[in-house]
């Protein structure tokens, strides 16, 4: 069992013929994801890898194939339009991998998506994987294995690191969700925590946050009041100098707002386990699965 995607997920890939899109579509297909369609305007009628039909628009792809999920690999200037196109096409879940989407574009996209009742994950995220069932995005499949832990993270590669360490220790995952590090994203920690709480197969949750903003503090509050399952948290950027931007638009600390110390304190106050380094997740999660 899993959250958001499973073996019934039927995927349409926006930007399927691009460098990243084609590479990762092949990886998703090898993993077993049902890739039912691709979209590249002007290449409608062609096929990808001789098997996946390509359409000019997402609407065409959805009506021809019944796709229920879209993943976006288009360049940043086109990403906002691609998200809105997907949200207007009949799919229920839109996953935007693209990094570098202007935040003002997202102020337009966010209400558009919400009003249609569509779930958006990202942008600037690695996507998600339900091990053994389906992968949508770029999380390397071989580092995951099925099991009882739900994983949610604001970072891409840091997620891989922690999933990899869990898998090496024999601890599998129900689903791993990368929500992305941008200031405005479609799905937040609380959405994922609620989904894991509702998923009968998830027994514990690993959550990776970063400095900047207050999402982790709000998530800790949700854990305290609404979750029965144990949650272990980690904050990246404990040694980051104040006031400097560390790549992610989200990873900004100024003054006392959004520091690692503040977030870790919120985790502790919520009775969560706190990992000081990625490797600590292994023992902390193990102890909570007993």
């Amino acid at each position: 069992m899993s959250v958001f995607i499973n073996k019934d997920t039927k995927l349409v890939v926006q930007g399927i013929t691009g460098r990243d899109g084609s590479f990762h579509t092949k990886q998703m297909m090898e993993y077993g994801t049902q890739v039912v369609a691709g979209v590249t305007p002007g290449k409608g009628g062609q096929t990808f890898e001789s098997t996946v039909p390509i359409y000019n628009t997402v609407a065409d792809a959805v009506s021809a194939t019944g796709a229920n999920t879209a993943v976006i690999y288009v360049p940043p200037p086109f990403a906002a339009d691609a998200i809105m196109e997907a949200a207007d096409s009949g799919v229920q879940l839109v996953v935007c991998i693209t990094e570098g989407v202007p935040v003002l574009d997202m102020t337009k996209v966010y209400p558009f998506v919400k009003e249609r009742g569509i779930r958006l994950i990202g942008p600037n995220c690695p996507g998600l994987i339900s091990p053994g069932e389906s992968k949508v995005g770029i999380i390397p499949g071989r580092i995951c294995t099925p099991g009882p832990v739900g994983v949610v993270s604001r970072s891409g590669t840091l997620t891989y690191e922690i999933v990899y360490q869990l898998t090496r220790a024999g601890i599998g995952q129900t689903s791993c969700v990368g929500i992305g590090g941008d200031p405005i994203n479609g799905t937040n920690f609380i959405d994922c925590l609620a989904a894991f709480e509702a998923d009968p197969h998830t027994k514990a949750v690993a959550m990776m946050g970063e400095i900047g903003g207050t999402d982790e503090q709000e998530a800790a509050d949700f854990v305290k009041h609404h979750m029965t399952k144990p949650v272990v948290g980690f904050i990246a950027g404990q040694t980051a100098p104040p006031g400097r931007r560390m790549g992610h638009a989200g990873a900004i600390i100024s003054g006392s707002a959004g520091t690692a110390a503040e977030k870790i304190e919120a985790f502790e106050a919520a009775g969560m386990g706190v990992a000081k380094r990625p490797l600590d997740f292994v023992e902390l999660i193990k102890a909570r699965l007993k």
Binding site: T157, L158, M208, E210, Q238, M246, G247, R277, P278
Partner: peptide, 17 residues
């Protein structure tokens, strides 16, 4: 030299650890 902001920050944290 790291790929990804989150992992880069976690790597710095681990160097300090």
């Amino acid at each position: 030299v790291v790929n990804g902001a989150g992992l880069a920050m976690a790597t710095m944290d681990l160097v300090k650890y």
